[in-house]
């Protein structure tokens, strides 16, 4: 595989991993949500993310000329080869933590995917086009939850603030371009993440203010997901997710 194609593959797999890992985490809410309506909605959002992951993995498989299938890429790599952002893989925590994560990620994704629709790579642009519509709905929901929980009771406010505080150190990573991305940005394939920071901050801060929440003080920040350096939680998530493919290798399901 030539260098340019390898970079595109790396980029596409990272996109897929982001969606896969968040979708996997969200699906853990099924039958555990505070309302039946939320069981339904969270499963629905999880489904969007797994669907998005599937499209990116299928494209990755195509870029590899079918050397691995989409499922192979998802289910047969170990953690060190996963390239998702760390924020996606954190355990679901309580409902406030999960909704805070969705909100922070949704604000990013909506803008990111909207720009990615203009990608010079037609397949990437098409997947982004579908993702934008989903993210618009996701953000409507998570935005609403930040308001309700932030400006709800003392307890919900405290939980939402705690969720934000715990997540804040993972935010920088959203705006860091990988080497592959830097090259692809020049070709008009990828979007410069760094450019989204101001707009993201403005939108998030406005909502936090409305929700009577405070912007967490930035005292720590971690990165690593794009290099395959994950949290210790991640291996457990993969062990569960990949169990059948690992226990019964090489089969159709």
């Amino acid at each position: 595989m030539n260098g340019a194609r390898q970079k595109l593959l790396d980029f596409v797999i990272a996109q897929a991993d982001d969606a896969m890992v968040l979708g996997q985490r969200l699906s853990e809410w099924c039958s555990n949500a505070p309302y039946l309506e939320e069981d339904l909605a969270l499963t629905n959002v999880a489904l969007d993310y797994v669907g998005r992951a599937k499209m990116f993995y299928e494209y990755a498989s195509k870029l590899e000329a079918g050397k691995r299938s989409a499922d192979d890429i998802a289910f047969l790599r170990d953690g060190r080869d996963f390239r998702n952002l760390l924020i996606m893989e954190l355990p679901i925590g309580d409902f406030a933590f999960s909704m805070a994560r969705q909100f922070l990620v949704d604000v990013f994704n909506l803008e990111y995917m909207a720009l990615l629709q203009q990608s010079s790579d037609a397949e990437v642009a098409a997947i982004a086009g579908k993702a934008v519509k989903e993210s618009r709905y996701h953000l409507r929901r998570s935005h609403e939850w930040v308001l309700r929980l932030g400006d709800g009771t003392e307890e919900s406010h405290a939980r939402m603030q705690k969720g934000l505080d715990e997540l804040w150190g993972y935010i920088d990573e959203l705006f860091v371009n990988t080497d592959a991305e830097v090259a692809l940005i020049k070709e008009g394939v990828a979007i410069d993440r760094a450019l989204l920071r101001d707009s993201w901050s403005n939108q998030v801060e406005a909502v936090l203010q409305e929700a009577t929440l405070s912007k967490p003080g930035v005292e720590w920040t971690v990165t690593g997901g794009r290099q395959g350096i994950h949290t210790e939680h991640f291996g457990h998530m993969l062990a569960e997710m990949q169990f059948l493919q690992r226990a019964y290798p090489g089969l159709e399901w």
């Binding site: 555990n32 505070p34 929980l149 400006d151 709800g152 009771t153 919900s156």
Partner: peptide
Amino acid sequence: HDNGAWVREAVEAY
């Protein structure tokens, strides 16, 4: 259901 009680209370308060 019990774990969600504080969420439902928050929605009411909001």
